[in-house]
Design a protein around this nucleic acid. Sequence first.
DNA 1: CTGTATTTGTCCGTATGTATA
DNA 2: ATATACATACGGACAAATACA
Lengths: 246, 246
Amino acid sequence: MSDRVQGGEDALPVKRIDPAYQQVANQLRALIIDGNLAPGDRLPNEDKLCSRFGVSRNTVREALRILSSDHLIYAVRGAGGGTFVTAPDVLSIQERLQTSLRLLTGSNEIDHDELFEARALLEIPTVRNAARHRTPEDIDRLRQLEARVQHAGNTLERTENSEDFHQAIFEIAGNRVLSIIAPPVWAALTLSWRDQSSPHRWSTIDHDHGRILQCVEAGDEDGAAHAMMAHLRDLHGISQGGDQND
Amino acid sequence: MSDRVQGGEDALPVKRIDPAYQQVANQLRALIIDGNLAPGDRLPNEDKLCSRFGVSRNTVREALRILSSDHLIYAVRGAGGGTFVTAPDVLSIQERLQTSLRLLTGSNEIDHDELFEARALLEIPTVRNAARHRTPEDIDRLRQLEARVQHAGNTLERTENSEDFHQAIFEIAGNRVLSIIAPPVWAALTLSWRDQSSPHRWSTIDHDHGRILQCVEAGDEDGAAHAMMAHLRDLHGISQGGDQND
DNA sequence: CTGTATTTGTCCGTATGTATA
DNA sequence: ATATACATACGGACAAATACA
């Protein structure tokens, strides 16, 4: 997918030569993604990979580093150890997306407004679904998280707990794709907003959380949506969200 | 973020020892993400990194492979070459997100309905914004893309051109965050839907595209939203989208 | 055009740490 | 406790690519 030929004027239909370690990594990656190697499967040990591919141990190891950095494999030392295919895990996916968005904001390829709009777009329909799907247990959980935000000692804790509150709403809404995508957007947003320098007025935020919880508990979709929109504006210092359809 | 201590029962506050190559990679990664090393900057050559970190060249190289797999650096051989910090590029970010979502669908951690809902959530407000922001040039572009879909020779080409049509709508709407996130969701969706086996009825799709274009040109947000919703249902074989608020 | 210096790419051999049997 | 299997780490060497005088 990434190795399409550059469409220049006199582009010959050839691919640029990849280093050996890259080719080894590509082949193994394809095996994993296509399912020929399933999660938990063990790869041949490094010596065998050397002879199979006809490269040195060093080259094989560099290829394995690429795959382990992609969280496709992990290594276990010792007898009976080896290199295994990992089950895909959500946390590492989020971390990588977060890193990417962070770099894009750093180089001004995406800006604050786009991130805010994206967050609102993800979070407002989600809180509607949460208001529709909530169970009494869900409400209990939200109440506990709300309390933890209020009783947190310092700003860092409050921020983390607040993110847990929002994450819980995603989980209640029940869409795991959105649950995965949203937190990296938040993280990039808080980064792009450090020049704002407005110290959080936590009383406002606590009030917002309370109102959101109230609407979700009551099953009031419209109310929850408005409460969430107001909360996001409070969080990110937007006075008028001109483009938002709430 | 990933190196929090596991909260077991008798967990001592210690971190598991990372391999040397991992520590080197972590340090260099932090330097890049925090901006101490900006895109285009050149890292010290491998020998210098060896002496700085006090490890062998092999270890340094494995660390560099990790970072290059994250698309944070790239290597150039020869005199005046070296290892450089890359400018973040959107395509590689999308590819990685796509791989992740693909693996998650493959292991049934996310399902078709969640992907469909996510796509609708991203694409319906987007087409509204496109209907609001469109210029005459935008309409020309959409018309050309629509024609390319219709005149494509085979299914593969039609599919690719159709994705270009949708991508153009995102670009007209003007939110680059959403433009980045949406295509990987599409890709995972088409994968999770291969059992559907319904050969695309392209006439329906052409008709949908035409209606969307018409509404966007007229600036009819509601019409565009409904047309998009109907189109997505046609594409992914959903008869009743119970949870969607269109 | 030719050599020379610089830098990554590749390979080999060996030693060490770690976990299983 | 000993042997075995495996990843990890080291050091040295040469090859290949590129820039520059």
